[in-house]
Design a protein around this nucleic acid. Structure first.
Lengths: 199, 199
DNA sequence: CGCCAAGTGGACGGTATCGTCCGCTTACCC
DNA sequence: GGGTAAGCGGACGATACCGTCCACTTGGCG
């Protein structure tokens, strides 16, 4: 049944607060902190989102949709290599700018039954993205779909530093993925070891 | 003053237990768990290692020394590029096989005053390693020392999966670091998303 | 052997987070 | 405008971990 107007607004406030809190303190931030930031009681939070993962899932639903859209865009690109690169870049940028998204992504993607079908679709799309770029002779033949996950994980570490570090890492990786040749990199990034959040 | 014989043995047992516990449960494992695994009381643990970081530091002192040695070896290699690669490979392999080491490394390296000098020496060595490889024309000119940290962080994510994933990532990265050309990769790795420990 | 300082273990109070319960408030339908 | 069910918030008991304190044990020297 539909939520009452005030409840619906509170729900949105909670989701926003959760994203902010995750960005600031990582995904293990106490539920009470999120509730306080949203200006609601903990009970309200727990009523809407019974488990921590439920909240995380909903909080990043939009970001996840953005990733799926990026994949579709990449597949639609007439240039298979450009499509491939843009998918990798966009997803990694998302990881780096929306702190906590990656943890959410990795934590729940395995099980969460509701998304099994969406996940299968995504995997199929990724496989096509890779095959297409390889058939065009732009992506090295020994690249596998699993390497995409490897990129996600690698980027996870770099994302903790900031989008610049992530961009540079991705640029390095894409160059090694390309069949031959190299190209200039984004500027070097000063790494502040102190400010890394435990990914 | 010197430790009593039984105390010395307990100390070793604690360090071993700590490494095991870190590998299994990550670096945030409760102190009591380590104590139990070592077969000692918590008081004993706290007396030897007053803070969590003190324990972590000592537990991985050997691994850290190994890294420093790897750097020296790399610098001693007559082939600057081979020396560069071996340092990167060895350090990353250490991260991947000794779970928890990276967290230790990153967590405390910034402050921990006692190691300031050792750290400075390491940084100087790394700078020389990079410069040497560049002057030999084997390492791209736009590579910076900070990129080495970037590699460490990127590897951190891959290391959570296992040494194979780490090796493949490092191979990719080293190829993009090299002034020109590519080479075959280690075999592809099946990534078990379920078994990733929060790095 | 006997002393005693070094060493030990577990109990304990303190703190943080969890998730639920219950009495009060309020949106919305009539 | 009034009734009612949906919604609310904060208090509360449970749980986990921390780090200390203290009464007991034991290695090793004289």
């Amino acid at each position: 049944m539909a939520l009452r107007a005030d409840a619906r607004e509170n729900r949105e406030r909670i989701l926003t607060a959760a994203r902010e809190a995750y960005a600031l303190h990582g995904i293990d931030v106490p539920m009470a902190t999120i509730a306080r930031r949203a200006g609601v009681g903990v009970a309200t939070l727990y009523r809407r989102f019974p488990t921590r993962t439920a909240l995380v899932t909903e909080a990043f639903a939009e970001q996840l949709a953005h990733c799926v859209a990026a994949l579709d865009d990449g597949l639609a690109d007439p240039d298979p290599w450009r499509g491939f690169c843009s998918v990798v870049e966009q997803v990694c940028l998302m990881q780096a700018s929306e702190r906590g998204f990656t943890q959410a992504f990795l934590t729940q993607f395995p099980d969460h039954a509701g998304y099994a079908e969406e996940r299968a679709r995504a995997e199929e799309g990724l496989a096509r993205l890779v095959r297409r770029a390889q058939e065009a002779g732009r992506l090295r033949r020994d690249f596998t779909v699993d390497d995409l996950t490897l990129v996600i994980l690698a980027n996870c570490g770099a994302a903790g530093v900031g989008p610049d570090a992530s961009r540079r890492l991705v640029a390095y990786l894409l160059q090694s993925f390309r069949a031959p040749a190299t190209a200039p990199l984004p500027p070097s990034v000063r790494l502040e070891l102190d400010r890394i959040v435990a990914p």
